[in-house]
Design a protein around this nucleic acid. Structure first.
Lengths: 205, 205
DNA sequence: TAGATTGTTAATCGATTAACAATC
DNA sequence: TAGATTGTTAATCGATTAACAATC
C-alpha cells in the first residue's frame, strides 16, 4: 500500500476491472487471478497486479483475489460504494436515452434532475422525470449539492452550460457535446463523442 | 515525414485536433498555431507539433498551419475524407438516438442498416430506416461490404453479435454494451459506457 | 529585417513488463 | 509438501517536454 499520488491512467482502468469483476460475481465465481482477469479485460496480469497493489494487499499468494472483496475495495476506492445524484442537461434524443438507461443502477449513479432551455420541452415527462427550465439549473443544482452532470446539449451551448454547472458546484461532467470544454483543474471532464470514437478506428481500416 | 509505425496514442488525438480545427474553420479562421490549437484542446504545443509532424511538414515557420490544409490532411490520414457506411445493431433507446443523431454527417459516417433480434421491432421505422431482422445481419453486412458497426445490444448478447459482425467482415466496432469484447487483433473496438466514464471521475470528488 | 513558429533532437519523465522471492 | 499466484523490484520501453536551429 502506497500513499503517493495514483496516476490517472491507473484510475481509468479500475472501472474496467470493476465491471469485469461484477460480471464474474454475477456468474457465480468466487475468486479470480490477475491472469484470468487480464484475459477478460485485455490487460497483462503484471499490470493488473501492479494497479491493484497501489491501494493495498487485496490478493493472496497461491489463490488470487476474492471477487467479492476486490469488488468492495474497488467500489470504495472509486467512491461508488454510494449513490451519486446526477443532473442531466439537454432533453434531446441522447438525453432521453440516458434518462431511460437502466445501466446506472448498481453502478453508483442516479439521475435526479433533467434540464432544458427549450421552453417547449420544459414540463415534458421523461420516464419518472419532468424536464425543468434551464434557468433554474444553477439554483437547483446548488441546492441539491450535485457534483456530477451529464451534458447532452448542442456544441454551441456546451461551454456556457458547463460554466454554469461549475458555478453551481459541479465537479465532474460527462460531455456528449462534440467539443472540448475548458474547465478549471479541479473539474473533471469525460468525453463521449461517437464520431470521434469512430475516427479513432478508420485509420486502421 | 516518417514511415515508421505511428503509436495508437497519437492516432487517438488526431480526431480531437480534427474536431477543433473544424470548429475554427466554421468560425471563419484561416490559420492557427500549435500554441492556439493546444489551448483549444488542452494539449501542449510541443506535443501537437510532434504529433502532426509524424505525417508530414504541414506547417510554415513564422505563420503556423493553414486550417483548411491541415483539415484536408488529417481527414486523409484518418481516412474520413470519404463516407463510411455503418451498421447499427440494437434498436433500443440508444440505437434510436444514434439513428437520429445528426453529428455523423460531415464527419465521415452514415448509418445504412439497423438490425434487432426482437421480432416485434423488426419492420419498425426509425427515421428513414426500417429495422431489419438480426438473422439477416451476416448476409446483409457482408453483401454491403460494411467494415464498421455500432453495437447497442444488451451486455449478454454483445460478444455473440460481435462475433457475427466480425464473421461478416466488420473490422471496427463501437461498443455501447457495458462489457469487454474479445476480438482478433485485426479488429478495433472502441468503448462507450457512461457508467464507466462517470466512475473515472468519482475518485477525484 | 525582426518576429514568430515550425520540425526535430536530446533530455526527462512515466508506464509497462519481466522476473522472482515471499507465501498462501 | 508442491503448486500457484501475489506484491514488488529492476529493467525496459515508450511518451512528453524543453530547447533551439531553421526558416517563413
Amino acid at each position: 500500500m502506497k500513499a503517493e499520488k495514483i496516476p490517472d491512467i491507473i484510475i481509468g482502468r479500475l472501472p474496467v476491472y470493476l465491471r469485469a469483476l461484477q460480471r464474474m460475481a454475477d456468474s457465480g465465481l468466487k475468486t479470480t487471478s490477475s491472469q484470468e482477469l487480464g484475459e477478460h479485460v485485455g490487460i497483462s496480469a503484471a499490470q493488473i497486479r501492479k494497479d491493484i497493489s497501489q491501494f493495498g494487499d487485496f490478493g493472496k499468494q497461491g489463490t488470487g483475489y476474492s471477487i467479492a472483496y476486490l469488488l468492495d475495495k474497488l467500489r470504495e476506492i472509486l467512491k461508488v460504494d454510494r449513490i451519486w445524484d446526477v443532473a442531466l442537461v439537454g432533453a434531446g434524443d441522447i438525453g432521453h436515452a440516458l434518462a431511460n438507461y437502466q445501466g446506472f443502477k448498481d453502478r453508483g449513479f442516479r439521475i435526479t434532475m433533467i434540464f432544458d432551455s427549450d421552453k417547449s420541452k420544459v414540463g415534458q415527462k421523461i420516464g419518472n422525470f419532468t424536464v425543468e427550465d434551464a434557468e433554474m439549473m444553477i439554483e437547483k443544482v446548488k441546492a441539491a449539492g450535485l457534483k456530477i452532470a451529464m451534458l447532452t446539449v448542442p456544441a454551441s451551448e456546451a461551454q456556457g452550460v458547463a460554466d454554469k454547472l461549475i458555478q453551481a458546484g459541479v465537479r465532474a461532467i460527462l460531455n456528449y457535446a462534440p467539443i472540448n470544454l475548458n474547465t478549471p483543474h479541479n473539474v473533471k471532464v469525460q468525453y463521449i463523442d461517437p464520431a470521434t470514437h469512430l475516427q479513432r478506428m478508420t485509420y486502421y481500416l
